[in-house]
Each structure stands twice: as structure tokens, then as C-alpha cells.
Amino acid sequence: MSAKSRMGGLGKLSDFGKTSKTQAQPETVVVEEPKAEQVAAPPPEPTPQPAPQKQADDKGKLVPINIKITRRQHEWLNDMARTVRENNSEPVPPNERVFPQHLIGAAIDLLQASDMDWSQIKNVEELRNVLNL
């Protein structure tokens, strides 16, 4: 069996990737600079838009985070999210289904709404004590 019959007459494998000697020369492109008379006036300043509201940020773009939780916490989050999804008697659209990330987001909202003095919290143990956990 010859190499020619195995490769269908394509030649040696080492020949692939080599450039041919008859490459086309790149064309020269001439760019003309605009004359002073042709230069357009700068565009007017954009009109200031009202600042976005806080509610728009809450519903805004989701960003991924990397957190480490215990296996028990992970299982609990999955179980609770499944329980909430099963509470619905009718199908829920995908964008309204509850998953562990939504429970974590709700927990963050609870922490934000708490009336604790965050400047006094020095570690996780103190946070747990303030929250009576």
C-alpha cells in the first residue's frame, strides 16, 4: 500500500501548511485626507438623560459570583427551591421559576433590610450572633 493511495494523491502530510511561492501581492490603498472645507462640525453634545432609578438596577443585568457554601447548605437551597417550584399548580414561565440563586438574592435583600450597625460587625461569628443564628 503506498502513501499516495491512502491519502488520495494529496501528497505528504508535511507539505500541508506550507505557503505557495505565487502569493498575490497586497493592493496599495491610498487614503486621502479631508480638506479643511470638508471637515464637518463636531456633533452637538447629547442631551443629559435622567439618572436611572434604583428599581431599574434591581431588575438589571445579573452578574455571576463564585461562592463556597457547605454541602448541607447547598442541598437545603436545592430542596427549598424545588419545594417553591412544586407549590405551583400551573406551569410557571422559565423566567419566573425559583432556583437557589433567587433564594440567595432574597437573603441578600433581607440582610440589606436589617437594621444592624454594619460598622460594628467584625467577623461571621458576630454577624450570626446579631442575627440570632
Rank of each mutant, 00 (worst) to 15 (best):
P26Y: 06
P26I: 06
P26G: 12
E27K: 15
T28V: 13
V29A: 15
V29H: 15
V29M: 15
V30A: 15
V30K: 13
E32M: 12
E33D: 03
E33C: 02
P34G: 04
K35R: 09
K35T: 12
A36V: 01
E37R: 02
E37M: 00
Q38C: 10
V39D: 10
V39M: 07
V39T: 13
P42R: 00
P42I: 00
P42F: 00
P43G: 01
P44G: 01
P44K: 02
P44C: 02
P44R: 02
E45Y: 00
P46H: 06
T47R: 09
P48R: 05
P48D: 12
P48E: 12
P48N: 07
Q49L: 12
Q49F: 10
P50C: 11
A51Y: 15
P52G: 10
P52Q: 10
Q53D: 10
K54C: 12
Q55S: 09
A56E: 14
K59N: 07
K59C: 02
K61N: 13
L62F: 07
V63L: 03
I65Q: 12
N66V: 02
N66Y: 00
T70A: 04
T70Q: 04
R71D: 13
Q73P: 13
H74T: 11
E75S: 13
E75W: 01
W76H: 08
W76K: 09
L77W: 01
L77Q: 01
N78S: 12
D79F: 01
D79C: 04
M80P: 11
M80K: 07
A81Y: 03
A81I: 05
R82G: 08
R82F: 03
T83R: 03
T83S: 02
V84A: 06
V84C: 04
V84K: 03
V84H: 04
V84W: 03
R85L: 04
R85P: 05
N88A: 14
S89E: 14
P91Q: 07
V92C: 05
P93K: 03
P93G: 01
P94S: 05
P94K: 04
N95Y: 04
E96H: 10
R97Y: 08
V98C: 03
V98H: 01
F99R: 05
P100N: 03
P100R: 00
P100K: 00
P100V: 11
Q101E: 12
Q101L: 02
H102C: 04
H102K: 05
L103K: 02
L103P: 11
L103W: 05
I104H: 02
A106P: 00
A106R: 03
A107L: 14
I108T: 14
L111A: 07
A113Y: 00
S114A: 04
D115V: 13
M116C: 08
M116E: 13
M116Y: 09
M116L: 12
D117R: 09
D117C: 06
W118A: 02
W118C: 02
W118N: 02
S119N: 10
S119W: 01
S119Y: 11
S119V: 05
Q120G: 07
Q120P: 05
I121T: 08
I121N: 08
I121H: 11
K122H: 06
K122P: 06
E125C: 01
E126N: 08
L127D: 09
R128N: 13
